[in-house]
């Protein structure tokens, strides 16, 4: 049996009468790329915030990296990485300063920071840009750097919230290469996206509609089940039933 790094059982978050997340249940396996899809307002971000230890669930159970989301938020935070949809590095710090700042915040040792950042800069091909302020880099590089920083402390799980917004197709492809590489190294990737071609890259995807998980399977099987040619069609068939607007 495969090791499960995220286990959700009837996880719920309500604000008064409004159920932003309504009894969702799913498991995510170690090293898996798990796509978390849904229209705007379907409850993706709220669900993700609970899993990251940013907000408490109203009811239900969940463990992330083996830690309880109610009681062990601090331990969860140590074991995950996070990249938000907004660009999340400091523009007026240099490439190296950003790396060592976030490494330091996660408690990575100085010596290790030095070694790993050299390695990282090699792989990203940023040798000539280390002294440059991050604000001067093109968006594609910024995103790749942000992802590398998010997994710099070798977390068990990395949460990516619409990581490729506004990036050109080529860079997106390269970005996904990096995601695959991280998954190969055993990092579980939990990713939300609006791009259906990206959904096809995931091992398994869940589609949320109105706070509930309406479908969960591999892209191939989902297409079969909804007798659709593309993920686009699957998503459309599901999301059409949504009652919540944007």
């Amino acid at each position: 049996m495969e090791e499960k790094v995220i286990i959700c059982k009837e996880l719920t978050k309500s604000f008064g009468d409004f159920y932003a997340v309504n009894k969702i249940s799913f498991d995510v396996n170690k090293g898996e790329i798990f796509g978390f899809l849904g229209a705007n307002g379907a409850g993706k971000t709220t669900a993700m915030r609970m899993l990251c230890g940013l907000s408490f669930p109203t009811s239900g159970e969940a463990t992330v990296a083996g830690f309880n989301v109610y009681k062990q938020q601090d331990s969860i935070k140590k074991n995950i990485g996070y990249m938000s949809q907004k660009f999340s590095l400091y523009e007026n710090l240099t490439v190296l300063e950003n790396i060592s700042f976030f490494g330091g915040v996660y408690g990575v040792r100085k010596k290790e920071i030095k070694e790993r950042s050299e390695e990282l800069i090699q792989t990203l091909g940023l040798q000539n840009e280390t002294k440059k302020l991050v604000g001067e880099l093109p968006l594609g590089w910024k995103q790749k750097l942000a992802f590398s920083v998010a997994i710099f402390h070798k977390p068990k799980i990395v949460f990516l919230d619409e990581p490729t917004g506004g990036v050109d197709p080529l860079t997106r492809r390269q970005f996904w290469d990096m995601i695959y590489k991280a998954a190969d190294e055993g990092i579980t990737v939990f990713v939300t996206t609006h791009y259906m071609d990206e959904a096809e890259y995931c091992n398994r995807i869940s589609i949320m509609v109105d706070g509930r998980v309406e479908a969960l399977d591999s892209p191939g099987k989902l297409k079969e089940r909804f007798s659709a040619d593309s993920m686009d069609e699957v998503f459309y068939k599901l999301a059409r039933g949504a009652k919540r607007g944007e």
């Binding site: 990251c52 907004k86 915040v105």
Partner: peptide, 13 residues
């Protein structure tokens, strides 16, 4: 505004 606060809050800091 920049979204870095979110990242900091997710971190163990």
């Amino acid at each position: 505004e920049l979204g870095t606060m979110e990242v900091l809050l997710v971190s163990p800091f």
